[in-house]
Every structure is written in C-alpha cells, then in structure tokens.
Amino acid sequence: MSRTHSVTLRAVLRHVLLIAGAAIMLAPFIWMISTASKPQTEVFSSELHLIPYRFALVENLREAFAKANLLRFLLNGVIVTISIFVLQVMVALPAAYALAKLRFVGRETLFALVLFGILIPPQATAIPVFLLLHKVGLLDSYAALVLPFTISVFGIFLMRQFFKTVPDDLVDAARMDGISEFGIVWRVMLPAAIPAVTAFGIFSVVAHWNDYFWPLIVLNSEQLRTPPLAVAHFRNNEAGTSYGPLMAAAMVIIAPLVIAFLFAQRRFIEGITLTGIK
C-alpha cells in the first residue's frame, strides 16, 4: 500500500516537473497567440490578462496582410528552404555514399575534415562569403540566400552514418545488376535512407525558414524578404511597434512550419519503423 502510494507521488512529481517545463516552452507561443488576438489598447494596458476582452485576431491579421505582402514572403521562404534542401541532398548523398561505401586513399582524412566543418559556426564564415557574393555580383538575390548553404557538412555526416548501416551486400547486388555508382546513390541508397533524409529535412527546413541573420545581411530588396525579415519589418521605432499585427504575422509565418513538422514527424516515425525490416 505504502509502496504504490510512494510510486504515485513520484509519478505526480514527475508530471508536475514535465508540465512546468512544457509551460516554460509554450509560454511565448501562448503569449504570441494572446497578443495577436488583442486590440492595440489591450496590448498596452498595464494589467496582464491572457484572454482578450475583445477578440481582434481577424483585424490584426487583416492589418498584417495589408501592411506587408505576407504571401510573397511566405513564398520566398518556401522557395529558399526547398532549394536549399534539394541542393543539400544532391550534394550530401553522393558525398556520404563515397565516405561510407567506397574505398579510396584519404577517405578518413576527408571524413575528419567533414567533422571539423561541423564545428565551424556559420557566422565565422559570414563575412568572407558575403564578400565573395559581392565580388560575383550575387548579393540581394535568391542565389545569395541559397548558395552558401548547399553544402551541408552536417547533412553529409548524418547521411554517412546512416549509409554505414546499409549492408554492403545491397551495394554489391546493385553493382552486379549493372547499376552505376551514381545510380546506386539515387536508386538504392536514397530509398533506403528516406528516414534519415526526412530527419535531415526537418533540421534543414526549420533552420533556414527561421534564419534571420543571413537574409538580413545579404538582402536589400523588399520582394525577396524571407518570413523572419517580414516580421521584423513590423517593428517601427518612429511610429511605435504595432504588436497586434506583428504577432499575427508571426503566427502566420510559424503556421506552415508547425503543420509541416507535424506531418513530417509522422512520416519520420513511419520511416524509422520501416528500417526495422531487413
């Protein structure tokens, strides 16, 4: 009796801790939704209340879409993140295949360099890359947003680790069947690595959809702005920031990511169970 009692007490404590953690994580989002639903007067009122007295979500959304071309910015975000991801996969898969399955002199050294590359923060190379793009004349374009991220060392590392688990026999069977080395990458390794590609896709898309730093330095033109820049545009030091529409815009740009993530997460779990079969 006392034992079950102590166990339940533990369980309660555990849940309280987890809920507290979740609350801390969720608070900014809840606050965002709350603010997005409040009219301007309630946002600046001194009392704190979560549920607005008068719901103004629709008005805020309308203002947000009126003040900025949000759809265009969302489209920019989609173009940039998808291009980055596709190019990253096109580079990472053959590279990972070579590092995992081919034997050549200097392979371990190359892999060590890849690992070393993971340690370098993107900010460290920002200025050289910026200057390079300037010299080439690509600043303020989609290319400036996409090109610096096409080689993802993290992607190469992740895919290489996954490819290591693909049996060598499968690669040999493909060679016996007459599939070329590049053919093996796309016809054999890619289908086998769908879970890993999905996982990498989640990392990549989230990182570049939310990236604020790089678009901020390479972009000038308004029509190229990515979603985070668009939100920042609502901050206005002179006229005062209009928080209602800002939060509404933030909601809009987060929505695709949340939806995509939920969808990909399910695929992701499916993918992991798929690899259980031989």
Binding site: L170, D172, R175, M176, D177, P191
Partner: peptide, 21 residues
Amino acid sequence: IRPSARNLAMVFQSYALYPHL
C-alpha cells in the same frame, strides 16, 4: 571488366533484395 559486364549472377547471404521494391 565491370561486375555487371561479366554477366555473372550472385546470390548473397543476406539476399540483398532492394527493400523498397
């Protein structure tokens, strides 16, 4: 000559069937 051009067929211990096909 490349493996496929030798026109030999191989059956592997793990069967090595393509799991997605």
